[in-house]
Each structure stands twice: as structure tokens, then as C-alpha cells.
Simulated assay, not measured.
Amino acid sequence: MSAWGVALFSDDTACDVRDTYRELIEDGVGDEEAVRHVLDGFGDALVDPDEGPVVWLALAWTQSKIGRLDAAVRDRALAVIEQGEGLERWQEEGGKALAGRQAALDKVRAQLTGPQPERKRLRRPWRHVTDLTPGAVLAYRVSSGRLVLLRVSQIDDDRVGCAPVLTLVRYLGDALPSQQELDRLPDAVDGSCPLGIPVDGVMNAMVFRVAVHRKKDPDYRALGFEPLAGVLQPRPGDERFDSLLCSYTHWEGLASIMEWYAGCH
């Protein structure tokens, strides 16, 4: 099971159902179509005796909280509660765990059977779009006065933002390189501190997806990352975005990481 607690949303599946449904409504998808998308998308979970009940409960709860409770979804969720579907794990644990889950289900029942809130319109969250483009090179001067360089290897454009993917270049210098020097600089070396110093595998990411999540968050210029006049041509692998090899951060976090790397030298 994906649960880590007795509450309805102390569960990965429940959270995924809630987030998926809300995102569909935020994107302007109609009520019936949104339900169909959720049920289709969680088809495998629906046939699982543990996760299936969670899907119905999470969907009904989420609908109810925004004034869009569908009668068929409500009835199916209430049947889950009345018939004790998905309670086997909690019954095996017994004691406080079972009592806590029952209390959580009582809360869901009260939400679904009580007065429903007015229908709410959900707006899509603010979405930042970077002005950086592939090939751009950013210079950052660390507190020692030396410069580190990162190149924009690609742009990752998804529902929540359009963010640059930066690859650290193997460079730590006192002055900005010329275009000719820039062209010869390799990317950071795998298995070492990206500036070339061997480390024990701690904090040695080389590729960063750098996002701005809120309007008040500083962008790259405010943190001292300056675009160079020169550019770097695409390199093998730039067209592939591997989220498992990428460190997700923000500009303040990236500045701190650059300080740490430079301090290794």
C-alpha cells in the first residue's frame, strides 16, 4: 500500500487522485470529463482491493470540497465506507490504527453527506516562463571573487513552469573567457566535484532544473547570475531530459551550491 498514516491523504494514491482532479478542473476540463480522466488514469488502482477504495474516497472528497460532488461518485464512496472496503490492513494492525482509520472515514462520510459548499472555480497557478534560451551561458561570481559557468542545455516546459536546464561547465576562473576559450571548455566531469576536484559523491550534481515558483521569488539576475555575450552550441545528450539525473532547485539554492563547489577548490 501507498499509505503512511490513517488519514485519507496520508496516502500517495489519494494525493495523486486529488492533484490530478484539481489540475483538470484548473485547466478548464468539464466535470464529467474530469471524472472520466481520473478513473481511466487510475484504472489499475481501481481493481486493487487496497487502492481502489482510496481512489473513490479521494475523488469524492476532492469534488465535495470544491462544490462539484457527483452523485455516482458520492454513492460509490459511501458504499466503500459502509462495506468496509480497503480496511483489511487497518484491521490487521488493530488498536489505534484501526480506530484512527475509522475516524478518518467518519470524517469523509460527514463531508459527503452534509451540506455541500458552493461550486468553486479553480484557477491555474501562476506559471513562470524563463527568458533564457538553449546555448546561453551564465556566469556566477562566488564570494571568493572567482567565476563559475553554467550553460543552458535545454528548456523544460511543463504545466507548472518553463524552466532552464543548466549544465555546469568545468571552469573556475578570475576573468570571463573569450568565445574561443568558451568553445573549448568541457562540461563537468562525472564522478567528481563538477569543477574537477574528486569528492566522496556528496553534492556532485552537474545538471540543474532551476525554477521560479512564486512571483516574489528572485530570478537569476537578482541573484548575480549574468548572461555572457557568447553562446555554446548543443552537445550530445542535450536533447534528452533525464529527470533522475537532474537536480531540481531554485536560483537561491543554485547560488549556494556554486559557493560550495567553488569552496572545494
Rank of each mutant, 00 (worst) to 15 (best):
H37K: 08
R121W: 03
E51V: 05
D12Y: 11
A71E: 15
L87Y: 00
L138H: 08
D190S: 12
I197E: 14
E181H: 05
G84M: 08
R170E: 13
G230W: 14
L149H: 02
V210W: 11
Y261I: 15
H37V: 14
R18A: 03
A163Y: 07
C193F: 06
A262N: 02
F225W: 13
Q83R: 13
A99M: 03
K96H: 08
P125W: 00
L232C: 10
F42S: 06
A3E: 12
A163Q: 04
E85Y: 05
L98D: 02
L69P: 00
Y261N: 15
P236Y: 09
D44M: 11
G100D: 06
V142R: 15
L245R: 15
G30Y: 04
G230D: 14
W61N: 00
T13L: 08
F241Y: 15
Y261K: 12
L149C: 03
L138V: 09
V35C: 10
L166M: 14
T62E: 00
A163H: 12
G237M: 09
Q63C: 03
T113L: 13
A255H: 14
D158R: 10
W251C: 12
D70G: 00
G86K: 08
R22Y: 04
W90S: 09
P236R: 08
T167R: 11
H128R: 08
V231T: 15
E118V: 05
D70W: 01
F241T: 10
K65D: 05
E92R: 14
L87F: 00
V38E: 06
R141M: 07
A188F: 01
T13Y: 05
V38T: 06
R22N: 03
G145R: 12
S192V: 06
T20H: 03
G196R: 11
F42D: 07
D44A: 13
V6M: 05
A77E: 01
S10I: 00
R101S: 01
M1Q: 10
D131W: 08
M206Q: 15
E252D: 15
G67S: 02
Q111R: 06
V169H: 00
L176K: 04
A255V: 12
L46W: 09
W90D: 13
L122G: 02
K107C: 10
Y248S: 07
K215H: 06
Q116A: 09
P117Q: 04
D75R: 07
I66P: 01
N204G: 09
L78A: 05
E33S: 12
